Simulated scan of single mutants.
Amino acid sequence: MLIGWIENILTGIEALNNILTAGIAITAFSLFLYALSFNLRDRVARSFAIILLCVVVVFTTEALQNRTVPDWGLELLLRAQWVGIIFLPPSYLHLSDALLVTAGRPSRGRRRNAVRFAYLLSLAFLILLGLGLLVGKLVVNGNPAPHLQRTLWTEVFTLFYIGIITLAGYNFIRAYRRMLTRSGQRRMLYLMAGATAPALGSYPYLLFGSGFAAQYPLFFWSTVIIINVLV
């Protein structure tokens, strides 16, 4: 009886997660269209639009994944999801650099070159994705959900992801400290908090934690729900 209750709870949590994922995708797409109404020559608006586009790709492909989709369709969606994941780090670095410029700390060339280099590395990872090297085959019966196998290049990308997001976070803090007014600091704080959640919620943790997630599915899905609510 207890097992039945747990299964019912898990089913409900999964359904709620699907609703939240679809809601995030729709909201991000709406914000992306809104961002396009701004002057895209402005680096803040342009980099923010790129982040939103990445979030749209990640959460739209995730929302389309369900039990009615055939195995080949699931694998296609999971691989398409990686397109958004790959370009999230450089877009965050791009935004952090643009915010520093807005805060009165223009780049002397190093930050801008770092942004360009990050985009080039992401392009290289995209090529690896197309060659089937960045991630492995689909684990159809994976618990608690189907996922792709990780490869050596997956681990390399994870280090790249963590490193670039950390550097972007450092730039966010620098921009926050350069705000001269409380209202400016408050807006920057809201932006930092809002930018952190998509970075945390977009990475496919099942690549590394599928064993733990399979053993504790209730904890896994509850954590996913919390992250999606934050996003």
Rank of each mutant, 00 (worst) to 15 (best):
G4F: 04
W5V: 13
I6H: 05
N8P: 03
N8M: 08
E14Q: 14
A15V: 05
N17W: 02
T21E: 07
A22W: 12
I24M: 10
I26T: 14
A28Y: 01
A28L: 07
L31E: 04
F32T: 11
L36E: 09
D42A: 15
D42Y: 11
R43K: 13
A45D: 13
I50T: 08
L52M: 06
V56R: 01
V56S: 10
V58L: 04
T61L: 09
Q65I: 15
R67G: 02
R67L: 11
P70D: 06
G73W: 14
G73I: 12
L74D: 08
E75F: 04
L78Q: 15
R79T: 05
W82A: 00
V83K: 13
I85W: 07
S91G: 01
Y92F: 11
S96Y: 00
D97S: 13
A98F: 11
L99H: 07
L100E: 15
T102I: 03
G104R: 07
P106R: 10
G109Y: 06
R110D: 12
R111I: 02
R111K: 03
R112W: 03
A114P: 00
V115W: 03
R116Q: 08
F117K: 06
A118G: 05
A118T: 06
A118I: 07
L120E: 09
L126P: 00
L129S: 02
G130M: 11
L134F: 06
G136A: 01
V139Q: 01
V140N: 05
V140K: 13
L148R: 05
Q149M: 09
V156Q: 01
T158Y: 14
G163E: 02
R174E: 13
A175K: 08
R177I: 05
G184Q: 04
Y190M: 15
Y190K: 13
L191M: 09
A195M: 13
T196H: 10
G201E: 07
Y205S: 10
G211N: 09
F212E: 12
Q215F: 15
Y216I: 03
F219R: 03
I227P: 08
